Simulated assay, not measured.
Amino acid sequence: MRESPLTALLFMFVPFSLTAFGGGLSVISGIQEQTVNQLGWMTAQEFLNYFAISRAAPGPGSLLSSLVGWHVAGLSGALVATLAMFVPSSLLCLAIAVLWRRYKGRRWLSILEMAVAPIGVGLLIAGLLSLAPLALSSSSLVCVGLASFLLTALKPSFHPALILCAGAAANASVHFFIQFQ
């Protein structure tokens, strides 16, 4: 028997919710693998577009789950995916906070904190590496990405929304120019 899209979204996002050490970006590679390569719910370009929208929107980066849910099953899919991504990790954080408070100052707790940090960093790097081939598929995207990086690094006070708008305008201009040549 084939499971419904809502059940598939639930079973996909709950494990990601519980393993998102370092935030939503840490599970991007897994979400991309599942939605594009395993389940075929969307193309790599559609995933990259949804990722860009989720990063531009205010709020946590794991809002990508809402967009994936919407793509797969409309409003009900967005609700299921969002709840599946946020409720389990929130409950886990609440339970850990209670335990953290109870065992505060214990040596084993300090060791555990140091052990979890590299896991979060590794998951973040994996997420970025999974998106790199999608973004590197276009020379205009590479140029816009490098220019955005340099501007952010050299002028950190520059508002990210302005950089985002400038990058989108530059990329759209290049594609417009290419299309009408």
Rank of each mutant, 00 (worst) to 15 (best):
44 A>M: 04
103 Y>N: 13
148 S>V: 07
15 P>I: 03
119 I>N: 02
116 V>T: 10
29 S>C: 04
25 L>H: 11
153 A>M: 09
12 M>Y: 03
156 P>A: 00
26 S>F: 02
94 L>S: 15
85 M>S: 11
35 T>M: 07
8 A>F: 03
126 A>Q: 05
160 P>T: 06
181 Q>G: 15
76 S>M: 13
97 A>M: 15
122 G>R: 06
73 A>K: 08
79 L>Y: 07
157 S>K: 13
93 C>G: 14
169 A>M: 12
71 H>K: 11
75 L>H: 15
95 A>M: 11
179 Q>E: 06
45 Q>N: 12
106 R>E: 11
11 F>V: 12
63 L>P: 04
149 F>I: 08
162 L>Y: 10
102 R>Q: 15
13 F>H: 03
20 A>T: 11
55 R>Q: 14
47 F>C: 05
38 Q>P: 08
170 A>M: 09
137 S>W: 07
162 L>D: 02
108 W>C: 07
56 A>G: 11
130 S>D: 05
179 Q>Y: 03
139 S>F: 13
47 F>G: 01
134 L>K: 02
105 G>S: 07
149 F>Q: 03
12 M>C: 12
154 L>Q: 05
143 C>P: 12
27 V>I: 12
29 S>W: 10
113 E>K: 15
174 V>R: 03
96 I>D: 03
67 L>W: 03
130 S>W: 01
97 A>P: 11
94 L>F: 14
55 R>M: 15
139 S>Y: 12
6 L>K: 11
99 L>G: 13
5 P>H: 03
102 R>D: 14
176 F>K: 11
151 L>M: 07
2 R>S: 14
18 L>D: 02
134 L>Q: 06
27 V>M: 08
147 A>E: 05
84 A>T: 08
50 Y>C: 11
